[in-house]
């Protein structure tokens, strides 16, 4: 189920522009790893390179290795489509499919692999995934309504339900709470604490309190200046990062002296 991810000497390019340079990191299974850092430092780019979503932009490529439990995700014979089926993603803005009902949204990913799913199986999976995302009680009476009829926080939990319905090995979250109010944020954070029992979770966040609250490990990204590549400055247990970081730059950032 939950898998370890080993990243070694990863450089990420957009065309000729080196966006992220020299990332070496080991992401533990069944834990939450938070990535923090100022805007434009490459943390989202790095996150999207884990499930090869950055390749959606033309010209994007990487050098180096991303290995998930021995499987090289950038191997010559690896189809990015299969990588994305193993590594789920939740985006900054909630993005349920507006043309699908709540129930269809949940099983949209499963439909890709298994067109002829039985009705009862589909209903079971919808309930299980929505319960897993702490959304079942709020939507069970209107599963056939469009996903866009929900509030922002509910929509984001619907997206999490959709991502976990395909039982991925890893769940990537790209600032999942930055468009939500504090109550919805709390609901998502509680949910993450439950989900880490089953999944490897990597979250990008601008909210340092959130990183401190939810994560076991924290990585700090920074860049030296505009046009320079982003780098992983420090990667340590969250407690250490927020109390006694190794790097001066990390301490400056978390104490609010810059960024």
């Amino acid at each position: 189920m939950a898998k370890r991810i080993e990243v070694s000497d990863l450089n990420i390019y957009y065309g000729n522009f080196l966006a992220v340079e020299g990332v070496n990191v080991s992401i533990e299974p069944r834990s939450i790893t938070a990535l923090i850092g100022p805007s434009g430092c490459g943390k989202s780019t790095f996150l999207r390179s884990i499930n090869r979503m950055h390749e959606v932009l033309p010209g994007a490529r990487v050098e180096g290795k991303v290995v998930m439990d021995g499987q090289d995700l950038y191997g010559a014979d690896v189809d990015p489509v299969n990588v994305r089926r193993q590594i789920g993603m939740v985006f900054q803005r909630p993005n349920p499919f507006p043309t699908m009902s709540i129930a269809d949204n949940v099983i949209a990913g499963n439909r890709l692999n298994n067109k002829g799913m039985k009705k009862s199986d589909a209903a079971d999976l919808v309930e299980k995934s929505l319960r897993g995302a702490n959304l079942w009680n709020e939507v069970k009476d209107r599963l056939d309504r469009p996903g866009s009829s929900l509030s922002g926080g509910q929509q984001q939990r619907l997206c999490i339900a959709r991502a976990i319905a395909v039982e991925p090995d890893v769940l990537l979250m790209d600032e999942p709470c930055s468009a939500l109010d504090p109550i919805s944020t709390l609901a998502i954070e509680d949910l993450m604490a439950e989900l880490k029992e089953r999944f490897t979770i990597v979250i990008v966040t601008h909210n340092m309190q959130q990183a401190a609250r939810v994560s076991e490990q924290t990585g700090f990204f920074n860049l030296n200046g505009v046009g320079q590549p982003g780098r992983l400055i420090e990667f340590n247990p969250t407690e250490k990062i927020f109390s006694n970081p190794d790097q001066k730059a990390t301490e400056d950032y978390i104490s609010g002296r810059f960024g």
């Binding site: 979503m53 489509v81 299969n82 990588v83 994305r84 089926r85 789920g88 985006f91 993005n95 499919f97």
Partner: peptide
């Protein structure tokens, strides 16, 4: 919307 296209791709859609 790119938002929904990315949602589909991230689920492993071709």
């Amino acid at each position: 919307p790119a938002l929904h296209r990315e949602a589909a791709l991230a689920l492993g859609a071709t």
